[in-house]
Structures are given as structure tokens and as C-alpha cells.
Design a protein around this nucleic acid. Structure first.
Lengths: 234, 234
DNA sequence: ACTATTTAATGATCTATATCATTATTGAGA
DNA sequence: TCTCAATAATGATATAGATCATTAAATAGT
């Protein structure tokens, strides 16, 4: 009976699950208002969508592709999360007193995004309680995810963190156990908080232990269960 | 000209600044509704206010005292933040599909809290856009703080993290440079993600370098500027 | 006031992971 | 097809910080 709530449930997975019905709470008038104040933009792989510290004129809704949300350090970045289609980016700029972007976002793949005027977004939050609740829901999910990631980073070691990410990529981004890895080892390192060299070594270990199979950019998870156990164990 | 936005601005400080006017957006009727569905409770030092995984009937508003919000690990905890008077706790349980507390909260000092019925809280969010915006604002601040902390944990070493916390205690909790340290070394360790022994060693180092002065539970910051530099440098 | 328990302090080791140095491989542009 | 730059791979070494072991001091309970 009941679900066992335990630290083991924390994962450093970085992707919130998609909310398809996010804009369904809008009235037709609000929908129109938003549409009139939104532009759709296509980005090539590797382009920057928004830059930490710049003024935030939009909330960004990711329609297609894949992006990383990160903090820039002196030498290395800290990836806060991967943004898959359905993600809202820039919500933390909704605060009235802090209207800049609080992270940099750039694309991994060719990406399409809707840029929604932030003042209109704010106005609709004030007008429409259901919509406001949805936004709060997104914040809740982001918060939980960040906490889980935080726990992983402080309590798991490299094996566990890398296992986390592989599971995350499989479960939440590519939706299958075999996928083409578009991330470099360096980027995997940024996602897991380890050096490139360590990523390489850990991946090798995983391959030797028959947990995964790699061929060029193709990666296949061979022993999902054990990988999950490694993620849990730390 | 302009403010230089840089990673150095990240701190592992754990306290959001107080929002005094949080409930000012409520109409008299909403204020009454909330009051009728709120109980005020006093907790002794060391008591648990809410436990990770239990159902969340309340949003907790901290009126007096000091509490820690943390995740329980097998051996050690991860303190997510310190809650000073003015803090709202349990907001992440507002999400409709996840109505449990996502962390444990216990008190450091004798503490007073208002427990606000969560359904009433939800209802008022839907009814009152201004209030919803304020809640979103709190989420924004929490998010920023968590990101900063995350950055510190992954990019700074022990010196920097301990410096962060001392500055935080001074600036945001006690509001002066000399204060009585109510936290044990173990708790400081949980706040900074290091072992008790390391806290002790770092504190000793700080004392030797004439950054701080300690006498029993009294702690005095002697060289605030340099401490800040250490926090920045990492 | 006296024991028992918790907390603090300190030194000696150990280890996970970073750092450094080098070579191999891949991919992109001319 | 060749060249240059980026990425990947691998071994050797260094180190921050954890872990372990012990003693000292402080706090609490009887």
C-alpha cells in the first residue's frame, strides 16, 4: 500500500514532461491577444535564443527541437535543464523587479519557438486565474525537478549521474532505447557536472559492463533495469 | 554603466528576502476567507513542521523564528533553504497532481507559523490575479535562489561556500555582523554540502586569517569585504 | 555535582575525480 | 583528396575533500 517516498526517487533528469493543454485555459479573446503578440522564430542548431542578463521581452515556448538552458561560468557552463518541445522558457523573468533573463538558452538541434510578449503574458495571468494556475503548475514542476537534480549532484557520484542522464534522454527526449546522441562528451559533462574525460571513462565502463552499446553517434541502452539501479544507488 | 551580470553574482545563500506586502492584494472578503481557514501554531526548537511525502493540507507562512527546508538522504540531509520570517513554505505542493510536501521542514528556533488551507489558497489564486502574480513572484525568487545555490555547489569549493553562508546569515537572517550561531557544525555542513570536519577546518582557517572571530556560540565577521571576495572567487 | 551524550577539534589516511599530457579519430572546408 | 580543427580516447599524476580514529569540550539528564 502507498508509494514509498524516498531520496532514491530523485534523479538529475533535466526535462519536465510536456504540458500539451497549457494554453487551453485561455478565452478566445485572450488567445487572440496572445497570438497577436507572439512571433514564431526558427533557430539553427547551435544558435543562442536568449542571453543571460539581457532584458526579457518574451516568454519562450519551444515548439520543436531541443535547447539547453544554462549558466555561463568562467570556463564551463552549468546546464540547468534541457528544454524539449512543450517547454516554457523565461518564466523566472515574470517577476516585476527582475525583468532580465536569468540564464542563457541555446539550441542543440534546429528549433522552432514562439516568442510571447512578456507583458501580455503577465496581463493574461492577472486576468485569467486558470491560466495563472497553469503557470504556477509549471513552476512547481520545475522546482521539483531542480530539487531532484540538486540532490543528485550533491549525493550521487559520477556513475549515478551519468546513468540518470542516459535514462532521461531515453525516456523523455527520444522516447526509445536507441537514439542518436547529439550531445558531445563535453555537453554530457555539463549536464552531469563532470569533466569530459570522466564522461568518456564512465561511458567506457558502461559499455564494458554491457549496459549500453555505442556505434558512432548511435547509443542503445541494453540493460535499462541495471542502469536504473545504478542511478538509484548513486 | 550598467550592472555586470556574471557568474560571480551567484551565491549559495539560502534565504529569500521577505515580502511584507504579500497578502495586501487580497480583498476584504478573501482576507476573511483566508483567516477563517488558517490556524496559527507555535513550534518548539527542533520540531518538524511538515514531513516529505505526507499530504499537504496547508501552505505554511512563517511568522517568527527560523526553519530549515530539506531533503532527507540516507545519512545526511540536503538543506534546500533556510526559511526566515516572511517565507512561504509548501508552494510546490500547489500543483494539482502532486499534493504532497516535497521536502521536510523543521525548526531551528522557537517558531510561529500560520497554516493556510491549501484549497482556499488555490481558490484565491484563481480568483485574484494580483495575488496569483505575487505567488508567481515568490516562485521566481525561489527559482533564482536555487539556481544560484546550484551554481555555487557545482562551481565553488568549500571556502567559497562557507563564506557564502556566513554572509547570508549576517545579511539576511541576523541583520548584523555579530550574531549567535544557532547552527551546529553539522548543520552548517548540510547547508554548504560539506562534512562536519571540513566545516570545522574551514572555520579555523577563517579564524586564523582574521576573517571572523568566534567565542562560544558568538560569531563576528571581522573582514566582510574579504569574505565576499572569497565567496566570489570560489 | 556527576555521569552520559552530543558536539567540537585535530591528525592520519584514503579515494573519487580533476588536471595534465599525449595520441587517435572524426568532420568540415578548401 | 588533403589539411586543419574539433572531438574522443587513454594513461599518469595531483588534490580537494571525505573518511576514520581519537581526544577534548560542552550540554543535558538524573
Amino acid at each position: 500500500m502507498g508509494k514509498n517516498v524516498h531520496m532514491q526517487t530523485f534523479s538529475s533528469c533535466t526535462v519536465s514532461l510536456t504540458k500539451k493543454d497549457f494554453f487551453d485555459t485561455l478565452t478566445p479573446a485572450q488567445k487572440k491577444l496572445m497570438d497577436d503578440n507572439t512571433v514564431d522564430i526558427k533557430y539553427n542548431k547551435g544558435e543562442i535564443i536568449c542571453k543571460h542578463g539581457t532584458f526579457a521581452p518574451y516568454i519562450i515556448f519551444l515548439k520543436k527541437g531541443l535547447a539547453k538552458v544554462y549558466l555561463e561560468g568562467a570556463n564551463d557552463n552549468l546546464i540547468l535543464k534541457l528544454a524539449a518541445p512543450g517547454s516554457l522558457i523565461g518564466l523566472s523573468s515574470l517577476s516585476d523587479d527582475n525583468t532580465t533573463y536569468h540564464y542563457t538558452v541555446s539550441t542543440y538541434l534546429d528549433t522552432e519557438a514562439s516568442l510571447i510578449n512578456i507583458d501580455v503574458f503577465r496581463r493574461i495571468i492577472r486576468e485569467n486565474g486558470e491560466f495563472a494556475s497553469s503557470v504556477i503548475c509549471v513552476f512547481c514542476n520545475n522546482t521539483l525537478q531542480t530539487y531532484g537534480r540538486f540532490f543528485s549532484f550533491t549525493h550521487k557520484q559520477l556513475y549515478g549521474r551519468l546513468a540518470d542522464i542516459l535514462i532521461c534522454l531515453s525516456d523523455r527526449i527520444f522516447y526509445k532505447e536507441e537514439f542518436s546522441l547529439n550531445l558531445t562528451r563535453k555537453e554530457l559533462g555539463e549536464l552531469t557536472g563532470m569533466t569530459t574525460e570522466s564522461v568518456i571513462r564512465m561511458l567506457k565502463k558502461f559499455r564494458q559492463d554491457d549496459l549500453i552499446e555505442m556505434d558512432g553517434k548511435k547509443l542503445k541502452i541494453k540493460n535499462y533495469e541495471l542502469l536504473l539501479k545504478i542511478s538509484d544507488y548513486g
